[in-house]
Design a binder for these strands. Sequence first.
DNA 1: TTGGGTGCAAAACCTTTGCACTGAA
DNA 2: TTCAGTGCAAAGGTTTTGCACCCAA
Lengths: 146, 146
Amino acid sequence: MDIKQDLARLNALGYRVTRQRRLVLEVIRANPCLQNVDDIFTQCRGRDESISYPTIYRTLDMLVEAGMARRTHFQGKNWYEGVMSSHHHHFVCTECGATVALAVCPLDFLKEDLRAAQFEVHEHQFELLGICKDCQSNQPKGGVLL
Amino acid sequence: MDIKQDLARLNALGYRVTRQRRLVLEVIRANPCLQNVDDIFTQCRGRDESISYPTIYRTLDMLVEAGMARRTHFQGKNWYEGVMSSHHHHFVCTECGATVALAVCPLDFLKEDLRAAQFEVHEHQFELLGICKDCQSNQPKGGVLL
DNA sequence: TTGGGTGCAAAACCTTTGCACTGAA
DNA sequence: TTCAGTGCAAAGGTTTTGCACCCAA
């Protein structure tokens, strides 16, 4: 669960451990929420003036490949989160951007049906979009839930 | 459930009924599967040489607004389907593009939790991506399931 | 040393917008 | 007649690619 462990695992998988890769990994692990590429880029840029968008994209692809990040797609953008906990999905507030992890994965309810139908599921995405409790009361908050 | 009924309803909602709108409606209703904008455009273009992408996009937006189409987003694209049956989600084969409707919506399993957490859900997306039975046996098929 | 990784610039892709013209009501 | 709707062209936003240079192993 430590960053150093992940870096060692990257190395073991044949990836080189670079300053940029460590940085992206740190950024997505520092936040329990889904973050889009812009957010990740901005945070990385704040700590490394020279890091570029292509590197962010390539690094995130690699982290997904290596099983250290998860990707989902909504609102026309890719969103990423570090793999720090067990698999889960999110409720995303379209007002303040807060994300809250959901307790269950719908796939759990469908496993039998899929096996029966002989589907081979490689990916699934499930996101809920709406307004969180705080934004409903028209008191926009700055912080992040969860 | 008839196209003419939908056109009349569009009219009643204050939308003008144009050749292009009828065409888009016919195309998404002619296919029970999710279709991306490219597919819809190509089919429309085959029957109306002058129809344009902006019109397709604007019409699909309008149909979603009017409750006659549903939109979902995956693989970096918008996907649409006509509203001909009750709400449902899909399994999409990444090999042949076939889509199969799923019997249940995960939201049904979460209603209580969401109410308890006071989430106000406006949208949700749930798609399964993988390989369908036919493609698993390495015999690519041209047709469309469901 | 060396080839995998990076930054830059540009392209690719999907979607939206501005504007003058058209046609449904 | 009139203004919502259309087509065209162009722009916008996100993601990918090509290539020369750099640096982790």
